[in-house]
Design a protein around this nucleic acid. Sequence first.
DNA 1: AGGCGGTACTG
DNA 2: CAGTACC
DNA 3: GCCT
Length: 634
Amino acid sequence: MKRSPGPGRPARASCKRTASDPLVVQKDGIFRDVHMVLIPGGGILEKQLQIWCRKVTALGGSCRTLSSGPTTADVIDVATHIAAATTARLEQRMEKVELVGRAARAVAVSFKWLEECLASAAQVPVDNFLLREVGWYEHDKEGPTGSEQPGTAGGACPAPLMEHVTAKAASPGYEPLPLPTSGLSLPLNNSLSLDDSTNCPALSHPSPSNDRVQREGTACGVRAGSDGSDDEAGPCVRDALQARGARGGSREERLQEWMRTEVALRRQGRPREEGAETQDGCEASQYPEVDDESTLEGAEGDIPLDLNEHITRHLRELKDIYEALGDEWRALTYRRAVGVLERLSFRIASAEQLAGVMGVGQQVRDKVKEILGTGRLAKLDSLQSDAKLRVLRLFSSVFGVGAKTALELYSRGHRSLADLRGDPSLSRQAQLGLRYYEEIGAKMSRDDVARIHALVQAQAESICPGVSCEVTGSYRRGRIMCGDVDFLVTHPDGKSHRGLLARLHQRLTAIGFLMADLRSFDDDDQGGGALCQTYLGMCRLPGTDDHRRIDIKVYSAAVYACALVHFTGNEVFNRKVRFFALQTGFKLSEYGLFPVTKIGKRKFVDKTSLPCATERDVFAHLGLEYLEPHERNW
DNA sequence: AGGCGGTACTG
DNA sequence: CAGTACC
DNA sequence: GCCT
């Protein structure tokens, strides 16, 4: 926040820094008299321990993990609670640290107690979560052998917390952990038991290193449509999308599995293991006759076909209509439903087959049934033949005109784009949107983008040597045709990007390349260190008199990797990754990857991002396998 | 009933 | 603040 | 419109 936001433009303030609740310590919080020590291991990752530490501290307690550094007897001496995953873990650790007997005051609890307290925003009784009283060690140095806890009777898991599994349900104020929701096609239903979260090893947090996607999981050769046969695909990740019924695993495991499934879906039948960068020098001309949605990879047959296109095309149209009408959430629902249906491994024979598929509810099922029966959708027919709706869709296809403005224009009596041209009430943006209407709607080849890239990069370099100037968006994802050019600019020295956009804009305008500004940037001088600046405009397509959309974003090197992930997209990928991040304790934005602490209903977002120097770091922190840009066409 | 991604510019 | 846009 |  080095620059003053500037009077009258408070929104600018949030550009510098992601809005995040500071980690306020509630001195009177539920842990006010708690001094906790966390024992690592038992499948709980360091990251999770740190998150818990923050929570405890925020709620008035103190907390240390026994992992780092020379810890120490004095910490144990004052501890009131010692938390571990399992009794075995606790014993092992305490013996190693030679603290046996030093913690007479402390009570040993399982992490589930901690989770329980946090979930219910109250300090719940420890009774059901006792591991073993630490004082026990004083009297029984021989160790645990003869003394099985009631209920821990052996299983595969070392001294698991079996006796605690009922505690959550019994606890007042317990609220179920929110499952991934809403049409992100999480293949889970709600009948899962939530009480097994930390039982067996290796759950908890995603681990950067050991979460490689299983190849065989992707090996289902559906290759959709390889032969005309309807089904009989065998076990296939695509079908995991509609799996039902109770499944094992903790919430984290299920999230991981969900995300792995999503990732695997996009990697199906990848022809090469790693291979050619899709980045720059790929020549589109090698792949003639491909449609807009193709990628360089896709041209080699690696995009699964939609076996239910005859259904999804109707639903897609509904989605477009609701978007134009500004019914954001209905549109979102249809987009999600389409996203699920279009990658089913079988051709839908009956709407009943969709029972239980996440993101497809009764009303969408009814529509599927109608389409299967009649080949049509009455609702869609009536919407499409609605003259007013057609006009609204037309108007909202103009840059700068959304649902509200479209309606307003209609109510003024406008019925065509020609009617709009004279209307002085149009915003400046909308007037430009009108002027460039056809060109904004047109696409361009990768060759065109490459030429624009060369031109802009050369200018940027001459202004600011050493600058990094990358084209993101659909081009970076390997699309054959691109609707715009989307630059992400930074300077590796972390400083020289300041004020660069203004100079670049000036230069590109002076040489007749930038033709119109659709949205300008805050060119307030004094380059205090803004994290970002954004420009949207129209540029001349080199060698022609055509114009195309161009975006230029200048970001500080510190946030470049996250910005690159963000602007490479696509949107669906961003939504799902961000959702996954949130569910596993992070907030991902173009400005960084921030640990999130949830206390009761309130969330605290760390002010400092985890260090992400490259895109790979972002994926690794989240425990996700790295995806090449062309694998993010979700 | 309330949420659904996270953010930046315009007017 | 509401509207629109970006991925 | 779907999910919790």
